[in-house]
């Protein structure tokens, strides 16, 4: 079993050879190690082992990897999500119309065809494997991109002075011209459409009360009115006596 850097001794021969191959030793350590290599044949065999050792990167299929590892996010077609897209679609269809497109180039990243890695692409364990994979699989190219630019305003030419002559509706007998009122005979030219603010709907819809219900409501109101007077009386704001209604008696 190969030793690892985590559990190996700092001065062990294996770690020194590994770091020597990697070029991580300073000059004093390199001289000391080369002096030992000259006198120790077993250490030279071990160095040959470390030099022949390399970490070969596996040929990962990134597309397959993304498909297998990344969980696609399912769109939630509920409530505001669906409504928002409908709104955007409706707004787009209503307000905008297609116009001639302008061509421009924009850099995009597309995956390159899979190839066998060269010797120069071999990385060691110290190099970031993801960066190496990305660098080796992606190629920077430019493609033509089509962008839709929609105008903010739409100009429509219309002659406002032309008369609007309603076409006769088949099956409906039109009234003779002399029956029309003078207001109705005015040509429909240059009429400005005024915005009419709609009246707010009443909260409680008025309904027809029967006479009995009306009398009951009247009695309730009268009772409340007399109660208010009685309250004022008890507060001392009115004379002590409760007089008869002098308008009737």
């Amino acid at each position: 079993m190969k030793p690892t850097t985590s559990d190996a001794d700092e001065n062990s021969p294996d770690l020194l050879l590994f770091r020597y191959v990697e070029g991580d030793l300073d000059a004093a350590q390199v001289q000391e190690l080369e002096a030992r290599l000259a006198s120790d044949a077993a250490l030279r065999d071990e160095l040959a082992f470390w030099k022949e050792s390399f970490a070969e990167p596996e040929a990962y299929d990134t597309a397959h990897l993304e498909k297998s590892l990344l969980v696609p996010v399912e769109p939630r077609w509920t409530g505001s999500y669906f409504g928002t897209w409908i709104f955007i679609l409706t707004l787009t269809v209503t307000l905008f119309r297609p116009v001639p497109v302008a061509m421009e180039t924009r850099p995009v990243l597309i995956p390159a065809p899979v190839s066998t890695p060269a010797v120069a692409d071999v990385v060691t364990e110290a190099r970031n494997p993801e960066e190496a994979i990305t660098r080796s699989r992606m190629t920077r190219i430019t493609l033509p991109f089509r962008e839709k630019r929609l105008p903010e305003t739409i100009e429509v030419e219309r002659n406002v002075n032309e008369s609007i002559i309603p076409a006769p509706i088949p099956g409906i007998k039109s009234r003779p011209p002399e029956v029309l009122s003078p207001v109705a005979q005015l040509p429909l030219t240059g009429i400005k459409v005024q915005k009419v603010k709609p009246k707010p709907k009443p909260i409680a819809v008025a309904r027809t009360l029967s006479r009995r219900q009306g009398r009951a409501i009247m009695r309730m109101k009268e009772k409340a009115r007399q109660q208010r007077k009685a309250d004022q009386f008890l507060k001392g704001n009115v004379p002590y006596v409760v007089p008869l209604n002098s308008e009737n008696f």
Binding site: Q226, A230, L234, Y240, V241, V242, P243
Partner: peptide
């Protein structure tokens, strides 16, 4: 003499 009841009636 006047005596009031609840501010609604008078007994005299």
């Amino acid at each position: 003499p006047k005596f009031s009841l609840k501010g609604k009636y008078t007994i005299s």
